[in-house]
Design a protein around this nucleic acid. Structure first.
Lengths: 195, 195, 195, 195
DNA sequence: CATGAATGAGAGTTCATTCAT
DNA sequence: GATGAATGAACTCTCATTCAT
């Protein structure tokens, strides 16, 4: 595949992302993507054979870009608390975003297919996030920044709360206050108790 | 509509429930339901005009039955802690159910339609659960069973965790241990601190 | 068929007439008639087996009633010119009626079926009208009321003009002035020339 | 749409015309056209979305072709009487055609839809014909070929007679003699009276 | 007589997918 | 590589018609 083709593939992915963000996963047809890209039906099939393939490619690209962004924002001398705060701030931003979110599509996708563990990007991302949080909490505990009996369990706990907020936000809507309330609870539950 | 028709309607709803539990919401066609019920195409349309109508009817029935079940299981002399424990036990049972769960379909449905607030059963159920939990927590606090600064915020907090577990359970699977861990955290956070 | 049944049949015909007047011929389904009559599907089939049968029955009733009305309005001492004027006045009234007209349905019906000559009510009515007009013109000529070389041809001529007006009125609409213009032309063409 | 597609569109229109001529308007289904064209269901939808769209396209083509034919047949040195005679001859030919006539379908179509004035092709054609006849009659009067007090009213009168003949011909059938009789009446009514 | 639930044929419509150009 | 016309399977929905009650 030449360079030109790669560019076109990128172009298709970008347009497809918009379509998935707007219509979710299942409702998207190859025709929708063809229309959004203004290319020919056959043309799309040269690059992707199904909406599933397209969606997985979009996800992969998305996840790579997200990692980049997050890494870039962490300063050299950041403390564990700084990083956790940054992480939660990013999550809040995402939760409040109305448009251009793949959240719905992602859930729909993983509802559709009982994806095997290894291919389950959703689970992988969850597990990765848990691991990162765990390391963060541990290092925070060592520094004396946090208090936390089981960093692993707490990491998972935080992620469940965030998942709960995420799903609530896109299926029934939540207010900024509700998010803040939860983030405060999280921070308090690991804060060093002052006596 | 005579008594016989009502029975048939019930029958269709029960079969439709199975179909939704198996295939989610969007993937279900009227034909799927027709096939599951072993009735004629037109026959189904006598009772329901669309999968949407069917699904809402299934939901309504489901919710009524759940209310009945829960009410029946509460003993006369139950304490707030008893009731909360029962509630969490029910939630755990539901979380561990693999088959026959409408969870996926429900989320899919509410992703599809940006349902107006008033008609949003999902939100209504969430809000109702929050209110019930709030009352429960308050009465527990008054009895000296629980300690909790803001029962309302805590009620919402519990529901977000449960939502997080629910979504995790059906999109990527969770273990019983993970559930128990969360339930323990919940119980601890409102337990009277022993000194 | 008992007296009660006859009444019901009449009732159905009356309701069916309304439906045909509103929707034309082809668009009418047995279901439409059932709904209009508020009777059961099976109930309708006891009396009529198809919309065609229904429509022919409506037509028959209509034509009988029209004959009655016309006969009743002719006074004993009416001259040929009086009767012709009355006839044209009736036609004009019918042409201007917007609602409750079977005209469209009738044309539609006879477009649908290449009805054999004997059963062609439309043709029979046309021929009957021509004959009546012919007799009228002849008697008018004999009285010296009209001047007309071939009463038969003139009768047919008048009917063609009326048909033209009728079709124009229901397919594209006509004004009262246009009708009057034509009626004047008709009356002039048979009027005794005054020198 | 390439040149090949245009050819196919033409092909579909031609076949659709045959179907409409045979079955009228309402009775025609997309399937009928598909069968007549020997193409696939989806194939037809690439070109036309409904029988209505198809019919309007057929009408448009028909009317363009009719205009061409008529223009081509008028000789340079034709008198008003020549042209009128040619026009009436064309009308007679059309009236006598048994097969392949869209007349029924056209009426049916305009019965179905209470088409708004501007889109009402039937009315437009009628009005256009009236205008052309009016000009023709005026010029004939100026030349001394015709005698006619109000060319406009006479033009309309002629069109009503032709409409009457048309509708009679397709709903109940008419003979060539009946047509000739009417055409003679028309020509006589504008002929210069010979004293 | 009368009901209305039930059937199934058939119309409309949309798309994934293929393939000649 | 790229196009877009073409196919046909699948789905939604409506009714004429039947039949047990």
């Amino acid at each position: 595949m030449g360079e030109k083709s790669l560019l076109k593939k990128e172009y298709i992915l970008q347009k497809a992302r918009e379509v998935f963000a707007e219509k979710g996963y299942r409702a998207v047809t190859m025709k929708d993507v063809v229309d959004a890209c203004q290319i020919s039906r056959g043309g799309l099939y040269l690059y992707f054979d199904s909406t599933k393939e397209l969606f997985l490619a979009v996800l992969k690209k998305e996840s790579e870009e997200a990692d980049d962004t997050f890494s870039r924002e962490i300063r050299e001398d950041a403390t564990a608390a700084d990083i956790l705060t940054l992480f939660l701030k990013e999550q809040k931003k995402e939760l409040l975003r109305k448009k251009n979110t793949l959240t719905v599509a992602i859930y729909e996708f993983f509802f559709c297919y009982q994806v095997p563990k290894k291919e389950n990007v959703l689970r992988q991302q969850f597990d990765t996030a848990v691991k990162v949080l765990e390391v963060l909490l541990k290092s925070g505990v060592e520094n004396g920044e946090f208090v936390c009996a089981s960093p692993k369990a707490m990491a998972r706990h935080i992620m469940f709360i965030l998942e709960g907020l995420k799903i609530a936000s896109c299926s029934m809507g939540i207010t900024e206050e509700m998010i803040d309330e939860e983030l405060v609870v999280i921070m308090q539950s690991i804060a060093k108790e002052e006596s």
